[in-house]
Design a binder for these strands. Structure first.
Lengths: 158, 158
DNA sequence: TAAAACCTTGGAGTGTGCTCCAAGCAAGCG
DNA sequence: CGCTTGCTTGGAGCACACTCCAAGGTTTTA
Protein backbone atom coordinates (compact mmCIF):
# COMPACT_ATOMS: atom_id res chain seq x y z
CA UNK A 1 0.00 0.00 0.00
CA UNK A 2 2.32 2.69 1.25
CA UNK A 3 4.63 3.53 -1.58
CA UNK A 4 6.93 6.45 -0.65
CA UNK A 5 9.59 5.72 -3.35
CA UNK A 6 12.68 7.51 -1.98
CA UNK A 7 11.91 11.06 -3.13
CA UNK A 8 15.49 11.94 -4.13
CA UNK A 9 17.23 14.07 -1.48
CA UNK A 10 16.09 17.65 -2.07
CA UNK A 11 19.32 19.18 -3.30
CA UNK A 12 17.73 22.52 -4.23
CA UNK A 13 20.53 24.57 -2.72
CA UNK A 14 23.93 22.90 -2.71
CA UNK A 15 24.33 23.10 1.04
CA UNK A 16 28.05 22.57 1.60
CA UNK A 17 29.92 24.87 -0.74
CA UNK A 18 33.38 23.46 0.02
CA UNK A 19 32.85 19.85 -1.03
CA UNK A 20 33.02 18.02 -4.33
CA UNK A 21 29.87 16.86 -6.11
CA UNK A 22 27.80 14.40 -4.03
CA UNK A 23 29.56 11.23 -5.19
CA UNK A 24 27.23 8.37 -5.96
CA UNK A 25 27.99 5.20 -3.98
CA UNK A 26 30.34 2.95 -5.93
CA UNK A 27 29.12 -0.28 -7.44
CA UNK A 28 29.92 -3.46 -5.53
CA UNK A 29 32.60 -5.51 -7.31
CA UNK A 30 31.63 -8.63 -9.20
CA UNK A 31 27.90 -7.95 -9.16
CA UNK A 32 25.91 -7.84 -12.37
CA UNK A 33 22.29 -7.89 -11.26
CA UNK A 34 20.61 -5.01 -9.46
CA UNK A 35 17.02 -4.39 -8.40
CA UNK A 36 15.47 -1.06 -9.25
CA UNK A 37 15.98 0.22 -5.71
CA UNK A 38 19.67 -0.65 -5.85
CA UNK A 39 19.92 1.35 -9.06
CA UNK A 40 18.14 4.21 -7.28
CA UNK A 41 20.88 4.35 -4.65
CA UNK A 42 23.63 3.90 -7.24
CA UNK A 43 22.44 6.59 -9.64
CA UNK A 44 20.50 9.07 -7.53
CA UNK A 45 17.58 8.81 -9.95
CA UNK A 46 14.14 7.87 -8.64
CA UNK A 47 12.48 4.58 -9.52
CA UNK A 48 9.81 6.62 -11.27
CA UNK A 49 12.42 8.18 -13.51
CA UNK A 50 14.07 4.86 -14.26
CA UNK A 51 10.76 3.34 -15.35
CA UNK A 52 9.95 6.47 -17.32
CA UNK A 53 13.30 6.31 -19.15
CA UNK A 54 12.41 2.80 -20.15
CA UNK A 55 8.92 3.74 -21.36
CA UNK A 56 10.18 6.51 -23.61
CA UNK A 57 12.83 4.29 -25.20
CA UNK A 58 15.86 5.79 -23.52
CA UNK A 59 17.00 2.46 -22.11
CA UNK A 60 18.21 -0.73 -23.77
CA UNK A 61 16.20 -3.86 -23.02
CA UNK A 62 16.32 -4.47 -19.27
CA UNK A 63 16.38 -8.06 -18.05
CA UNK A 64 13.52 -9.29 -15.89
CA UNK A 65 13.37 -11.82 -13.07
CA UNK A 66 11.05 -14.81 -13.51
CA UNK A 67 8.29 -12.75 -11.88
CA UNK A 68 8.79 -9.75 -14.12
CA UNK A 69 10.86 -7.52 -11.86
CA UNK A 70 13.64 -5.48 -13.43
CA UNK A 71 17.20 -6.75 -13.04
CA UNK A 72 19.67 -4.11 -14.19
CA UNK A 73 23.15 -5.13 -15.29
CA UNK A 74 26.45 -3.26 -15.21
CA UNK A 75 26.13 -2.21 -18.83
CA UNK A 76 22.77 -0.63 -17.96
CA UNK A 77 24.44 1.33 -15.18
CA UNK A 78 27.15 2.42 -17.62
CA UNK A 79 24.42 3.63 -19.95
CA UNK A 80 22.75 5.53 -17.11
CA UNK A 81 26.08 7.17 -16.31
CA UNK A 82 26.33 8.38 -19.88
CA UNK A 83 22.73 9.59 -19.83
CA UNK A 84 23.50 11.49 -16.64
CA UNK A 85 26.43 13.20 -18.30
CA UNK A 86 24.42 14.10 -21.37
CA UNK A 87 21.64 15.40 -19.18
CA UNK A 88 24.11 17.79 -17.55
CA UNK A 89 24.88 19.27 -20.95
CA UNK A 90 21.24 20.26 -21.33
CA UNK A 91 20.73 17.80 -24.17
CA UNK A 92 17.00 17.21 -24.62
CA UNK A 93 15.78 13.76 -23.65
CA UNK A 94 14.40 13.33 -27.17
CA UNK A 95 17.93 13.59 -28.57
CA UNK A 96 19.17 11.04 -26.09
CA UNK A 97 16.36 8.74 -27.18
CA UNK A 98 17.54 9.22 -30.76
CA UNK A 99 21.05 8.23 -29.72
CA UNK A 100 19.67 5.18 -27.92
CA UNK A 101 17.84 4.18 -31.10
CA UNK A 102 21.05 4.47 -33.09
CA UNK A 103 22.81 2.21 -30.61
CA UNK A 104 19.99 -0.34 -30.86
CA UNK A 105 20.16 -0.27 -34.65
CA UNK A 106 23.70 -1.59 -34.67
CA UNK A 107 27.17 -0.84 -35.98
CA UNK A 108 26.06 0.73 -39.24
CA UNK A 109 24.97 3.86 -37.35
CA UNK A 110 28.49 4.73 -36.19
CA UNK A 111 28.74 7.75 -38.46
CA UNK A 112 25.46 9.20 -37.29
CA UNK A 113 26.38 8.62 -33.66
CA UNK A 114 29.67 10.35 -34.28
CA UNK A 115 27.89 13.38 -35.75
CA UNK A 116 25.42 13.53 -32.87
CA UNK A 117 28.14 13.38 -30.24
CA UNK A 118 30.29 15.87 -32.10
CA UNK A 119 27.57 18.47 -32.26
CA UNK A 120 26.82 17.81 -28.60
CA UNK A 121 30.49 18.40 -27.90
CA UNK A 122 30.34 21.71 -29.75
CA UNK A 123 27.32 22.68 -27.68
CA UNK A 124 29.18 21.84 -24.50
CA UNK A 125 32.13 23.98 -25.55
CA UNK A 126 29.93 26.97 -26.20
CA UNK A 127 28.04 26.44 -22.94
CA UNK A 128 31.37 26.50 -21.14
CA UNK A 129 32.31 29.70 -22.95
CA UNK A 130 28.97 31.27 -22.02
CA UNK A 131 29.41 30.28 -18.41
CA UNK A 132 32.90 31.75 -18.29
CA UNK A 133 31.52 34.94 -19.76
CA UNK A 134 28.86 34.98 -17.08
CA UNK A 135 31.47 34.29 -14.45
CA UNK A 136 33.25 37.50 -15.45
CA UNK A 137 30.05 39.52 -15.07
CA UNK A 138 29.34 37.88 -11.75
CA UNK A 139 32.84 38.60 -10.50
CA UNK A 140 32.56 42.26 -11.38
CA UNK A 141 29.32 42.56 -9.43
CA UNK A 142 30.63 40.52 -6.53
CA UNK A 143 33.67 42.76 -6.29
CA UNK A 144 31.43 45.79 -6.34
CA UNK A 145 29.39 44.51 -3.42
CA UNK A 146 32.49 43.38 -1.56
CA UNK A 147 34.02 46.88 -1.93
CA UNK A 148 30.77 48.52 -0.94
CA UNK A 149 30.63 46.30 2.14
CA UNK A 150 34.20 47.32 3.02
CA UNK A 151 33.26 50.96 2.58
CA UNK A 152 30.31 50.58 4.94
CA UNK A 153 32.51 48.82 7.51
CA UNK A 154 35.19 51.51 7.50
CA UNK A 155 32.47 54.15 7.68
CA UNK A 156 31.17 52.55 10.85
CA UNK A 157 34.74 52.41 12.21
CA UNK A 158 35.49 56.10 11.62
CA UNK B 1 -5.67 42.47 -35.22
CA UNK B 2 -2.95 40.30 -36.65
CA UNK B 3 -0.51 39.74 -33.88
CA UNK B 4 2.32 37.34 -34.91
CA UNK B 5 4.75 38.62 -32.26
CA UNK B 6 8.12 37.61 -33.74
CA UNK B 7 8.22 33.98 -32.59
CA UNK B 8 11.96 33.94 -31.77
CA UNK B 9 13.99 32.23 -34.50
CA UNK B 10 13.78 28.49 -33.90
CA UNK B 11 17.38 27.75 -32.95
CA UNK B 12 16.69 24.10 -32.11
CA UNK B 13 19.89 22.90 -33.76
CA UNK B 14 22.75 25.40 -33.85
CA UNK B 15 22.95 25.45 -37.61
CA UNK B 16 26.36 26.98 -38.28
CA UNK B 17 28.86 25.26 -36.03
CA UNK B 18 31.83 27.48 -36.92
CA UNK B 19 30.46 30.87 -35.85
CA UNK B 20 30.38 32.72 -32.58
CA UNK B 21 27.18 33.11 -30.57
CA UNK B 22 24.46 34.95 -32.52
CA UNK B 23 25.41 38.49 -31.45
CA UNK B 24 22.49 40.67 -30.55
CA UNK B 25 22.34 43.90 -32.55
CA UNK B 26 24.13 46.71 -30.74
CA UNK B 27 22.21 49.55 -29.13
CA UNK B 28 22.09 52.79 -31.10
CA UNK B 29 24.24 55.45 -29.46
CA UNK B 30 22.64 58.26 -27.52
CA UNK B 31 19.18 56.68 -27.37
CA UNK B 32 17.42 56.12 -24.05
CA UNK B 33 13.85 55.24 -25.02
CA UNK B 34 12.87 52.01 -26.71
CA UNK B 35 9.52 50.48 -27.60
CA UNK B 36 8.90 46.88 -26.69
CA UNK B 37 9.59 45.73 -30.24
CA UNK B 38 12.92 47.52 -30.25
CA UNK B 39 13.79 45.68 -27.06
CA UNK B 40 12.73 42.45 -28.74
CA UNK B 41 15.28 42.97 -31.50
CA UNK B 42 17.94 44.13 -29.05
CA UNK B 43 17.57 41.26 -26.60
CA UNK B 44 16.22 38.36 -28.62
CA UNK B 45 13.47 37.88 -26.06
CA UNK B 46 9.84 37.89 -27.21
CA UNK B 47 7.45 40.69 -26.27
CA UNK B 48 5.45 38.09 -24.38
CA UNK B 49 8.45 37.24 -22.28
CA UNK B 50 9.25 40.88 -21.61
CA UNK B 51 5.72 41.53 -20.37
CA UNK B 52 5.78 38.32 -18.37
CA UNK B 53 9.07 39.31 -16.70
CA UNK B 54 7.39 42.51 -15.64
CA UNK B 55 4.31 40.77 -14.28
CA UNK B 56 6.32 38.41 -12.09
CA UNK B 57 8.40 41.23 -10.64
CA UNK B 58 11.63 40.51 -12.44
CA UNK B 59 11.83 44.02 -13.90
CA UNK B 60 12.29 47.41 -12.29
CA UNK B 61 9.52 49.93 -12.96
CA UNK B 62 9.33 50.51 -16.71
CA UNK B 63 8.42 53.99 -17.93
CA UNK B 64 5.24 54.42 -19.94
CA UNK B 65 4.31 56.81 -22.74
CA UNK B 66 1.34 59.13 -22.10
CA UNK B 67 -0.92 56.44 -23.61
CA UNK B 68 0.47 53.65 -21.48
CA UNK B 69 2.91 51.99 -23.85
CA UNK B 70 6.20 50.76 -22.44
CA UNK B 71 9.28 52.87 -23.00
CA UNK B 72 12.41 50.97 -21.97
CA UNK B 73 15.56 52.82 -21.04
CA UNK B 74 19.22 51.84 -21.26
CA UNK B 75 19.34 50.81 -17.61
CA UNK B 76 16.46 48.41 -18.32
CA UNK B 77 18.45 46.90 -21.18
CA UNK B 78 21.44 46.56 -18.86
CA UNK B 79 19.22 44.74 -16.41
CA UNK B 80 17.95 42.44 -19.18
CA UNK B 81 21.55 41.68 -20.13
CA UNK B 82 22.25 40.61 -16.57
CA UNK B 83 19.08 38.54 -16.46
CA UNK B 84 20.15 36.86 -19.68
CA UNK B 85 23.49 35.95 -18.18
CA UNK B 86 21.92 34.61 -15.02
CA UNK B 87 19.45 32.62 -17.10
CA UNK B 88 22.39 30.93 -18.83
CA UNK B 89 23.64 29.71 -15.49
CA UNK B 90 20.37 27.85 -14.96
CA UNK B 91 19.39 30.11 -12.08
CA UNK B 92 15.65 29.72 -11.44
CA UNK B 93 13.55 32.75 -12.34
CA UNK B 94 12.27 32.86 -8.77
CA UNK B 95 15.82 33.51 -7.54
CA UNK B 96 16.27 36.28 -10.05
CA UNK B 97 13.03 37.82 -8.83
CA UNK B 98 14.45 37.65 -5.32
CA UNK B 99 17.54 39.51 -6.49
CA UNK B 100 15.37 42.10 -8.24
CA UNK B 101 13.49 42.63 -4.98
CA UNK B 102 16.74 43.17 -3.13
CA UNK B 103 17.77 45.77 -5.68
CA UNK B 104 14.43 47.54 -5.30
CA UNK B 105 14.75 47.54 -1.53
CA UNK B 106 17.85 49.73 -1.64
CA UNK B 107 21.45 49.86 -0.51
CA UNK B 108 20.92 48.11 2.81
CA UNK B 109 20.56 44.80 0.97
CA UNK B 110 24.13 44.82 -0.37
CA UNK B 111 25.23 41.97 1.89
CA UNK B 112 22.38 39.73 0.87
CA UNK B 113 22.96 40.50 -2.81
CA UNK B 114 26.62 39.65 -2.33
CA UNK B 115 25.70 36.29 -0.81
CA UNK B 116 23.24 35.50 -3.58
CA UNK B 117 25.72 36.30 -6.33
CA UNK B 118 28.50 34.45 -4.56
CA UNK B 119 26.52 31.24 -4.30
CA UNK B 120 25.49 31.65 -7.92
CA UNK B 121 29.15 32.02 -8.78
CA UNK B 122 29.93 28.80 -6.95
CA UNK B 123 27.17 27.07 -8.89
CA UNK B 124 28.63 28.34 -12.14
CA UNK B 125 32.06 27.05 -11.23
CA UNK B 126 30.73 23.59 -10.51
CA UNK B 127 28.62 23.60 -13.66
CA UNK B 128 31.77 24.37 -15.62
CA UNK B 129 33.58 21.53 -13.88
CA UNK B 130 30.71 19.15 -14.66
CA UNK B 131 30.73 20.19 -18.29
CA UNK B 132 34.46 19.67 -18.58
CA UNK B 133 34.01 16.24 -17.05
CA UNK B 134 31.33 15.50 -19.61
CA UNK B 135 33.57 16.80 -22.36
CA UNK B 136 36.14 14.16 -21.46
CA UNK B 137 33.54 11.40 -21.70
CA UNK B 138 32.30 12.78 -24.99
CA UNK B 139 35.80 12.96 -26.40
CA UNK B 140 36.50 9.37 -25.53
CA UNK B 141 33.35 8.26 -27.33
CA UNK B 142 33.97 10.53 -30.28
CA UNK B 143 37.46 9.14 -30.66
CA UNK B 144 36.06 5.65 -30.52
CA UNK B 145 33.63 6.35 -33.35
CA UNK B 146 36.28 8.21 -35.33
CA UNK B 147 38.64 5.22 -35.05
CA UNK B 148 35.84 2.82 -35.91
CA UNK B 149 35.03 4.93 -38.97
CA UNK B 150 38.72 4.82 -40.01
CA UNK B 151 38.74 1.08 -39.56
CA UNK B 152 35.70 0.69 -41.79
CA UNK B 153 37.28 2.96 -44.42
CA UNK B 154 40.56 1.03 -44.53
CA UNK B 155 38.58 -2.20 -44.66
CA UNK B 156 36.82 -0.98 -47.77
CA UNK B 157 40.17 0.07 -49.23
CA UNK B 158 41.90 -3.29 -48.72
C1' DT C 1 -8.80 59.57 -43.17
C1' DA C 2 -8.35 54.92 -43.71
C1' DA C 3 -5.63 50.87 -43.58
C1' DA C 4 -1.84 48.46 -41.65
C1' DA C 5 1.16 47.72 -38.04
C1' DC C 6 1.90 47.89 -33.20
C1' DC C 7 0.74 47.93 -28.30
C1' DT C 8 -2.31 46.88 -24.16
C1' DT C 9 -4.43 43.47 -20.62
C1' DG C 10 -5.79 39.13 -17.84
C1' DG C 11 -6.04 34.69 -18.33
C1' DA C 12 -5.56 30.31 -20.62
C1' DG C 13 -2.53 26.93 -23.01
C1' DT C 14 1.98 24.38 -24.10
C1' DG C 15 6.21 21.46 -23.87
C1' DT C 16 9.58 19.31 -21.03
C1' DG C 17 10.93 16.32 -17.59
C1' DC C 18 9.70 14.34 -14.33
C1' DT C 19 6.48 12.82 -10.15
C1' DC C 20 2.84 10.53 -8.25
C1' DC C 21 -1.28 7.48 -7.75
C1' DA C 22 -4.20 3.31 -7.47
C1' DA C 23 -4.64 -1.33 -7.53
C1' DG C 24 -2.52 -5.40 -7.47
C1' DC C 25 1.19 -9.13 -7.46
C1' DA C 26 5.40 -11.09 -5.07
C1' DA C 27 8.91 -12.18 -1.62
C1' DG C 28 10.68 -12.66 3.04
C1' DC C 29 9.79 -13.10 8.02
C1' DG C 30 7.75 -14.83 12.54
C1' DC D 1 -0.97 -17.55 7.50
C1' DG D 2 -0.70 -12.78 7.88
C1' DC D 3 2.26 -8.70 7.83
C1' DT D 4 5.47 -5.67 5.85
C1' DT D 5 8.11 -4.19 2.22
C1' DG D 6 9.07 -3.92 -2.57
C1' DC D 7 7.92 -4.13 -7.44
C1' DT D 8 4.49 -3.84 -11.38
C1' DT D 9 1.44 -1.04 -14.73
C1' DG D 10 -1.09 2.88 -17.32
C1' DG D 11 -2.38 7.10 -16.79
C1' DA D 12 -2.97 11.44 -14.31
C1' DG D 13 -0.72 15.54 -12.24
C1' DC D 14 2.83 19.03 -11.51
C1' DA D 15 6.46 22.87 -11.78
C1' DC D 16 8.78 25.72 -14.65
C1' DA D 17 9.32 29.05 -18.17
C1' DC D 18 7.35 30.63 -21.31
C1' DT D 19 3.72 31.27 -25.30
C1' DC D 20 -0.44 32.55 -27.03
C1' DC D 21 -5.24 34.46 -27.36
C1' DA D 22 -9.11 37.76 -27.60
C1' DA D 23 -10.61 42.13 -27.73
C1' DG D 24 -9.58 46.49 -27.96
C1' DG D 25 -6.80 51.06 -28.09
C1' DT D 26 -2.62 53.65 -30.55
C1' DT D 27 0.65 54.99 -33.99
C1' DT D 28 2.39 55.22 -38.50
C1' DT D 29 2.11 55.17 -43.34
C1' DA D 30 -0.09 56.23 -47.81
Amino acid sequence: MTVMETTSTTSTASADSCAGPPRQPRRPDGQDKYTISEVVTLTGLTAHTLRWYERIGLMPHIDRSHTGQRRYRNRDLDWLDLVGKLRLTGMPVADMVRYAELVREGDHTYAERFDLLKSTRDDVLSRIAELQDTLAVLDRKINFYADAGQALASERAS
